[in-house]
């Protein structure tokens, strides 16, 4: 029966103020089941305060074959890194 159930990608928000991060995937027959399975699989050790589940089939991924064209041009553009600002100590999660 496992094969009949589509795959869902799970995103967990670790705490308020942070964005949801990909945590893994679950099999589920519908969205509610996916949410429950995600809760039981990925937040049982207090990892999160919010969950997203997305049908894996809906994820559009970049082509690994195009990785060079897509990502390498950024490699030598250090001026794009905002390293010249001083971040106040009390600001978290930047």
């Amino acid at each position: 029966m496992n094969n009949d159930w589509p795959l869902w990608e799970v995103f967990v928000r670790a705490k308020h103020g942070l964005s949801h991060k990909h945590a893994g995937s679950v099999h589920a027959a519908d969205a509610r089941m996916a949410l429950e399975s995600a809760r039981d699989t990925y937040t049982r050790r207090m990892e999160g305060v919010s969950l997203w589940v997305v049908p894996s089939a809906q994820i559009v991924a970049s082509d690994p074959g195009e990785a060079a064209a897509l990502f390498e041009p950024a490699a030598d553009k250090v001026y794009r890194h905002p390293t010249f600002y001083v971040i106040p100590e009390h600001v978290k999660n930047i």
Binding site: M1, W5, H27, A28, E36, D40, T41
Partner: peptide, 12 residues
């Protein structure tokens, strides 16, 4: 359990 996710749910 019928599948891994349910195994975890029931154990939880």
């Amino acid at each position: 359990a019928p599948m891994l996710e349910l195994d975890l749910s029931l154990a939880n």
